[in-house]
Each structure stands twice: as C-alpha cells, then as structure tokens.
C-alpha cells in the first residue's frame, strides 16, 4: 500500500484520483430508468409483435454460442490447435466428468447436450451484460410517452456529445398536474385510434437496444417451465405410470392417507422448482444490473470495476447452477418413488 505513494506510482495514483474527481464533478452518469418488464423498442416489430431489448440480447447470445460452437468444430483436429477447439473440448470434458460423477455414464451422455446448451447460452447471455453498450445505447423516448405507457415519472434532460444525443444527469420530474394532463391526452389519443405524442417533450428516458437476456422473466420462467416439464416427461418415460405415485394418489396405489399430504407437498415442490429456478437467475442478474447502474451513477470510473468482476463470477455461477439443477431434476425424475423400491 505504501508503494502507491512512491515514485512513478504516485503519478498514477494522482491521475486516477483526479479522474475520479473529474468524473464526480463533470461526468455525472444518469441513473437509467429501471423497469422490471423488458422495454419494447419503439417502432420495431415483427408481424405485429413488438420487439423487446431482451429478445435482441437473447438472439445475440444465441448467435455467440452458435458461432463459438461451430468455429470450434469447423476444423477438428486430433491434436487440438485452435484456441476455440481447445477450450470447447476442455469444457465438454470437465462437465462430462462432473455429470458422470453425479448420474453415471449413460445419463451424463444423454443429457450432456441439454446441460451444455443451458450453460453456454446462459453464460453468454449473462456475460453480454458487461459489454459496453449494453443498457447504454438506445432510443430516446419522451418521458410523457413513457409515463402514459408504464407510469415512469422521472426523465432526464438531453445534450449532444460528439454529435450523439445523450442523457445528462439533470432530472425532470412530472408534476401531478402534468401527469393528469398526459393521462387525459393519452386517453383522447387512444380513443381516436392514434398513437400518443406529446406537444413538447420535457425530458427523455433511454430505451436501450440491448438489455441482459436473463433480466426478462419470460426467458427465465420459460426455461424453468421447460426444464420441469421435461423432467416429468423423462420420469414418465423411464418409470412408467408408477411415476404418478410420487404425487401420492391413494385411490390408484392404495397407499396410506398420510401420503396425500406428502404428495401435495411434492406437487407444490414442483411449482417451487419452477419459481426458484426462474427467480434465482432473474434476481441475480437483475440485481447485478442494478448494482452496476448504481455504482456507475455514484462514481463513473473505477468503482464499477470490482463489481463487474463480481458479475462475471455471478454470471457464470448462475448459468452453472441452472444447468446443474436441470441435470439433477432430470436425474431425480428417473428414480421411482423412494418408498416403493428398496435399493
């Protein structure tokens, strides 16, 4: 620590501190408008369906995974030379070994593609969040329109930096009268079948083109739903009709009444699985995103750096946890009910 204040290091230290002070005083980063649902990008739509920024990020993650995968297998060599092939083989080998440890060779091979797809897809979906431009390049929307759509009341003033219009940190708040006025006007416009446009925009909010894919509940719930439903399909396939016993149907199996309660618990745990899978991923990535917003808002330089490193770790960890839980659910579904069979 003492070395920071000696010789050349002193210059660097002063430079960094000066940069931080400058950033605090002159480059105030506005806090982005935080919205739980993914934002629709104004004016973009396919066949009547609006496009959200998370959909774009999802496609970006898809493309990344596919590109890396295809480049890795394009020139397969027995003695790996390419960086991508090396790294993909390493990934496949490590997780193949890990799944074999958990579920045995046969199951590991059967579900390794599912595991790896989830892992790689979520990994890149989460890591794209850290790329500059995510959450910061987008369309300016007048705060009045945003209010009419989602109830946002705080916008920002704009300025032009290097020919691009950007938000500055000066906030614009809609007063209650203005809010009522906008409501009335929006209603009027809707009745007339037109889109609402304000006469004059007081402030703007940014609707980014890209937003981390896992901050959209549609993605996380969709994946969790798919995983849990698939695990039941796998259970039915391997265990057969007996699989229903796990949810305790005394009428069919003649089990003790206490099993009804156990069965109801099991049934609930299936829903809990979906919820916990979906919200674990969503919560981690969404809160990570907000953390980065807030850190950049407090101090634009240097401060977000450790948190970006943390997000790198969290992004990998959540992808891995989702994937390994998927495998464990699949694996559990192939066991018949613990009470029926004595292993």
């Amino acid at each position: 620590m003492r070395k920071l204040f000696q010789g050349k290091n002193l210059i660097y230290t002063i430079g960094v501190l000066a940069l931080m002070v400058v950033s605090v005083v002159f480059i105030r980063v506005p806090l982005p408008t935080i919205s739980l649902p993914a934002e629709h990008i104004p004016g973009w739509s396919i066949a009547g369906f609006p496009i959200t920024n998370t959909i774009i990020a999802t496609l970006l993650a898809d493309i990344t995974v596919l590109l890396i995968g295809l480049l890795a297998v394009r020139k397969m060599k027995d003695v790996p030379e390419g960086f991508l092939q090396n790294i993909m083989e390493w990934v496949v080998e490590i997780f193949d070994g890990m799944l074999t440890d958990i579920g045995g060779k046969k199951k590991a091979r059967a579900w390794l593609p599912m595991f790896l797809t989830i892992l790689l897809f979520l990994l890149f979906a989460n890591w794209w969040e850290l790329v500059p431009g995510f959450d910061s390049i987008g369309v300016m929307e007048p705060v009045e329109v945003a209010y009419a759509k989602t109830g946002v009341t705080t916008g920002y003033e704009t300025t032009s930096i290097l020919g691009m219009s950007s938000l500055v940190s000066d906030q614009v708040k809609l007063t209650e009268e203005e809010q009522a006025e906008i409501k009335a006007e929006a209603k009027h416009a809707e009745e007339a079948g037109e889109e609402y446009h304000p006469h004059e925009a007081k402030g703007y909010i940014l609707i980014p083109y890209f937003r981390a894919a896992a901050t959209d509940l549609n993605l996380t719930i969709g994946l969790a739903l798919m995983v849990v439903v698939l695990s039941h399909i796998i259970g039915f396939r391997t265990v057969g009709v007996k699989y229903i016993r796990r949810f305790a149907m005394p009428v069919i199996t003649g089990m003790k009444p206490i099993d009804i309660i156990v069965g109801i618990l099991e049934l609930f745990s299936e829903f809990a699985k979906i919820i916990s899978l979906a919200f674990r991923l969503f919560g981690n990535i969404f809160s990570g995103q907000i953390l980065l917003f807030v850190m950049a808002f407090l101090l634009a330089f240097l401060l977000p750096l450790p948190f970006m490193a943390l997000e790198l770790f969290v992004g990998f960890m959540q992808a891995f946890v989702f994937a390994i839980l998927t495998f464990i659910y699949f694996e559990q579904a192939t066991h018949s009910h613990a009470g029926d069979e004595h292993h």
Partner: peptide, 12 residues
C-alpha cells in the same frame, strides 16, 4: 447445438 456442435466434440 446438439446436432452440429456436441456430437463431433464428444466423438473426438
């Protein structure tokens, strides 16, 4: 992915 990428990798 399971058609194009993983089989060659696993085979290899």
């Amino acid at each position: 992915l399971s058609r194009l990428v993983f089989p060659p990798l696993l085979k290899m």
